[in-house]
Amino acid sequence: MSGLAFLIPVALLLGLGGLGAFLWALRGGQFDDLDGAALRILIEDDKKNGADR
């Protein structure tokens, strides 16, 4: 029983920490452009590939 008295507050603090990190990322604009990263791989960039040599 004493183990639960320790583990329940620890679990609640970790959950609140995860929620805080999610809200921080949400306010920081981390999830604003979900399609941009998926489409960026399709754009050819000749300078990065070394084709300009």
Rank of each mutant, 00 (worst) to 15 (best):
M1E: 10
M1V: 11
S2D: 11
G3I: 14
G3Y: 08
G3V: 14
G3L: 15
L4G: 04
L4P: 02
F6Y: 13
F6P: 02
F6L: 14
L7Q: 12
L7S: 15
L7W: 09
I8V: 13
I8S: 15
I8E: 14
P9W: 07
P9G: 00
V10R: 14
V10Y: 15
V10T: 13
V10E: 15
A11Y: 06
L12N: 14
L12D: 15
L12R: 08
L13T: 14
L13E: 15
L13M: 15
L13Q: 15
L14M: 10
G15K: 13
G15V: 12
L16V: 08
L16C: 07
G17F: 15
G17P: 04
G17S: 12
G18K: 10
G18F: 15
L19Q: 05
L19N: 03
L19V: 05
G20S: 04
G20M: 02
G20D: 05
A21T: 10
A21N: 05
F22L: 09
F22V: 01
L23I: 03
L23D: 03
L23A: 04
L23P: 00
W24K: 12
W24T: 13
W24V: 11
W24C: 13
A25D: 04
A25Q: 01
R27Q: 03
R27K: 12
R27Y: 08
G28L: 07
G29R: 01
G29S: 00
G29M: 02
G29V: 00
F31I: 00
F31Y: 06
F31A: 00
F31D: 04
D32A: 08
D32K: 12
D33K: 06
D33A: 04
D33V: 04
L34M: 08
L34P: 07
L34C: 07
D35E: 07
D35W: 07
G36Y: 11
G36K: 08
G36Q: 08
G36T: 10
A37P: 00
A37H: 10
A37T: 06
A38R: 13
A38V: 12
L39G: 07
L39Y: 04
L39V: 07
L39D: 13
L42K: 05
E44S: 11
E44C: 01
E44Y: 04
E44F: 05
D46Q: 07
D46K: 03
D46P: 01
K47N: 03
K47M: 05
K48Q: 10
N49G: 14
N49P: 05
N49T: 04
G50T: 04
A51D: 10
D52R: 00
R53C: 02
R53G: 02
R53N: 08
